[in-house]
């Protein structure tokens, strides 16, 4: 990409370079000086993302305690305490991401038009995203705790006798994932839905399609790629659950997610090769789920949805 040598200024301006033939041929293939604008970003991404990642990958094959390049992987998969973190993470992340995406569809479908207060609603929904997981966890501890407002409300309404245990277990983490993840999924899906040309649906309506037929045969197929993307992004958010799993979950038991395992290996046992191993396994599991979704997506309609500018 950077094979083009900077042309020596010849006095008349930039066009004539030292070797017009080569430059011309390269330019025809789309390589010219403009690509130099890309260089800082590439240097950056290679230096701070690709190289550390490969370094971590290499490190994961050099276990601290010796014993073959795959010893750390073996250690992870033979120890149920470590191995089960994969399952625990997926059990949290997949339902949370699915709920966020599926709940967003009917709500966004109803709200895609213009109505009064839409901007206010969007602003209200962005608030939990900006607050982030740490603050949400702090709020959930107060709000869902045994003496919190939620349990108090349930008790005064006579729905439960004893406060229900909602924090310090699976549900606390699940709620924190919904509170930060749902607005995110909703906003994405709302924008995908708004990007679908409404005249398509109106055309179907003039041909006599009922509400459900219009949704099933017009909107849903056009929305499906957006749904896949939204699911991926929401899943990444949920899969990387870390602070809330520690703060509102039960980090020693049922919400000991894989990121906690990686963190403990790196910062409590200072076993960087093992921590890298866990990070690599985490990346592999996450990318496998995303690849599955994207594979499904690649079979769907890929053209314009008619509404994009």
């Amino acid at each position: 990409m950077t094979t083009v040598s900077p042309p020596a200024p010849t006095g008349t301006g930039s066009p004539p370079g030292p070797d017009p033939g080569l430059r011309h041929r390269l330019a025809e293939r789309g390589i010219d000086r403009q690509l130099l604008l890309l260089v800082p970003a590439i240097v950056f991404i290679v230096g701070l993302f690709v190289y550390p990642f490969l370094y971590g990958l290499g490190l994961s094959f050099q276990p601290r305690e010796g014993g073959g390049p795959f010893a750390d992987y073996e250690r992870f998969f033979t120890d149920p305490y470590q191995r089960d973190t994969i399952w625990k993470t997926l059990v949290l992340a997949v339902p949370a991401a699915l709920l966020n995406v599926l709940a967003s569809v009917p709500i966004a479908y109803r709200m895609r038009g213009r109505f009064r207060g839409k901007r206010l609603l969007t602003i209200l929904l962005v608030v939990p995203i900006t607050l982030g997981t740490v603050l949400t966890a702090e709020g959930l501890l107060n709000y869902l705790g045994p003496a919190g407002w939620f349990n108090r409300l349930l008790q005064s309404a006579g729905l439960v006798d004893e406060p229900i245990q909602l924090i310090g277990n699976y549900w606390g983490v699940f709620f924190s994932l919904v509170i930060t993840g749902f607005p995110f999924a909703f906003l994405l899906i709302l924008s995908y839905l708004s990007g679908i040309d409404p005249s398509l649906e109106r055309a179907a309506a003039t041909l006599g399609a009922r509400w459900w037929d219009r949704f099933r045969h017009i909107t849903l197929p056009l929305l499906a790629p957006g749904l896949a993307t939204t699911f991926c992004l929401t899943f990444v958010l949920a899969f990387s659950v870390f602070p809330s799993a520690i703060l509102v979950g039960n980090p020693a038991g049922e919400t000991r997610v894989i990121s906690i395992a990686a963190y403990q290996a790196a910062y409590e046992q200072y076993d960087y090769p093992f921590a890298s191993t866990i990070a690599m396994i985490m990346a592999a599991v996450e990318l496998a789920v995303i690849a599955l979704v994207l594979l499904w997506r690649s079979r769907l309609y890929k053209g314009s949805t008619g509404g994009k500018g």
């Binding site: 990642f53 370094y55 971590g56 990686a262 963190y263 790196a266 890298s276 990070a279 985490m282 996450e286």
Partner: peptide, 10 residues
């Protein structure tokens, strides 16, 4: 597309 922890630790 990747959780920050996965590339954060390396």
């Amino acid at each position: 597309l990747m959780p920050p922890i996965t590339y954060g630790i390396p």
